[in-house]
């Protein structure tokens, strides 16, 4: 197993795509925290509230959510890229079983997911510091919690991509499915469900669950770090309503729901990839 994981890591590191997709992810994290930090520390806002607002926390979450499409796409190429370049033949011929190859891919791509998470954490931190001109940084505990959940969702998105790719088989098909679903299909679905008075359902859809894991935590931390004058339970609910997060489970609940989606896709992908003829 260790041998196959080493082989997968060598595959990843011997081409450029892993860092090619990491650059936009890291820059998105940086841009969002920069803007959030700059807004929260505006002089006008500060004089109004008597203190700065930790808006950088929710914008970090938004940034992570946008950036997560990149590790997801990279994960989707894990198996489909091999099918596309026909290296899958040699990969299956050099592995003890297809199952072992897929497990090795999951482990190796989880490592890649951690790397994406860390890159976003580092660049997000740089953006937060730069946007606030080095002042008014949120509490270290809150910030590390956001970085931690960022790494977690990046890993989950990567593995969801791996599972989807194994299931679909075609690289273009897997990437298009991923992009279309997250950017379009789920939004339409959520709207339709809303009109059917099924408002409780959309937070449990995959993209919402993945996004809410970071967003819900960021709102809690944001609320904790707010200046005392504006901190109240009513304000927190108002904020959640404003972001249409009223029916959202706590961040760890969303993370579990999202992990379940990744697991189901992974298992489905394993079943299909095990039987797939490589002609």
């Amino acid at each position: 197993m260790g041998a196959l994981i080493k082989a997968e890591l060598r595959k990843i590191l011997s081409t450029k795509m892993w860092w090619g997709l990491m650059i936009p992810a890291a820059l998105i994290a940086l841009g969002f925290t920069w803007l959030g930090a700059a807004f929260g520390t505006l002089d006008a806002l500060k004089s109004e509230l008597g203190a700065s607002l930790p808006t950088v926390l929710p914008t970090f979450a938004f940034g992570l959510n946008f950036a997560s499409i990149f590790p997801a796409v990279y994960g989707a190429t894990a198996l489909t890229g091999e099918i596309r370049h026909r290296t899958i033949t040699t990969t299956y011929l050099t592995g003890s079983s297809r199952g072992a190859v897929l497990v090795a891919k999951v482990v190796a791509y989880a490592v890649v997911g951690v790397a994406y998470g860390l890159a976003c954490a580092v660049f997000g931190t740089i953006g937060a510091a730069a946007g606030a001109h080095g002042t008014d940084f949120p509490g270290l505990g809150s910030w590390l919690a956001m970085c931690g959940v960022g790494v977690l969702v990046m890993v989950l998105w990567t593995l969801l991509g791996v599972g989807l790719g194994a299931l679909v088989g075609s690289q273009i098909g897997a990437v298009l499915t991923l992009l279309l679903y997250t950017l379009l299909v789920e939004r339409v679905l959520a709207t339709v469900l809303g009109h059917q008075h099924l408002d409780k359902v959309p937070p449990y859809l995959p993209n919402a669950a993945g996004s809410n894991a970071t967003t819900e935590l960021s709102l809690r931390l944001f609320f904790d770090e707010m200046p005392g004058a504006v901190r109240s339970h009513a304000n927190f609910q108002q904020l959640k309503d404003l972001l249409t997060l009223a029916d959202t489970p706590p961040w760890w609940g969303s993370a579990l729901v999202f992990a379940a989606y990744a697991l189901v896709l992974g298992l489905a992908g394993w079943v299909v990839a095990r039987e797939r003829d490589i002609t």
Partner: peptide, 28 residues
């Protein structure tokens, strides 16, 4: 068993040496 099934099974951007090192790792 070693097999030559097609002469196309390479990632176009991976060097020959890296290609072989990937599979050397896989087979230990």
């Amino acid at each position: 068993v070693g097999a030559v099934l097609e002469a196309q099974g390479f990632h176009p951007n991976r060097s020959a040496r890296n290609h072989l090192r990937v599979y050397a790792a896989a087979m230990g």
